[in-house]
Amino acid sequence: SHLLLTEPAPLEANHDDSTDDGSLRTVLTLCDLLNRELLLLIGWAKQIPGFSGLSLVDQMSLLQSGWMEALLVGVAWRSQSSAGEELVFADNLRLDAAQCRAAGLAELYEALRHLAAKYQAMKLSPEEVVALKAMALANSDADPVDCPDSVQRFQDWLHEALQEYESSRREQHRTGRLLMSLPLLRQAAGRAVQAFLRLHRHSSVPLHKLLLEMLDAKA
């Protein structure tokens, strides 16, 4: 319930109109949205119980490692009931398979639609979505870790909170099923990072400073 309260309201995309190239416009719009979401995500992370108690080095490591996974939980969640099998990055930024392909995001599209379908089949509750998002960050396998015991405790707290929630719903296998969806999330995030780095390096798509800094940390 604490995580639900601190969950930021969804952002709207600011549609780019600096170019006539439709695909480039889509990418620029998406990158601007991601940069703003990233800013919110960092503020959000600080409100997860236990996060601010970690060393600054570990806070940085977890975010540098897990930011894309944490952001994509929301995208997959919003995309799950999209009739046209779109990726719903924002209410006013919905990309279908063809648009993703044209923008160089075909592989990301496949992985995220797979994840969205999985979330839909599991009928995730909002509580489970925010728990997954926090766990993606806590479980980001940053290496090296400055204080492994503190990071472990942070993970254990979140795991306990999720288990407590599921046992109140008498769903014995639910926690395990949620955790088993994390590898697909990591795969999707890996594809997203590769796609945006490729767009930046090979197609010279300009990126905002924070987004570039976080992508570079993953490179």
Binding site: L39, I42, K46, L56, M60, Q64, L210, E213, M214, A217
Partner: peptide, 15 residues
């Protein structure tokens, strides 16, 4: 840390 200046600053700012 120099390389990750923005993240570092954002984390150090109070919430």
């Amino acid at each position: 840390k120099e390389k990750h200046k923005i993240l570092h600053q954002l984390l150090q700012n109070s919430t």
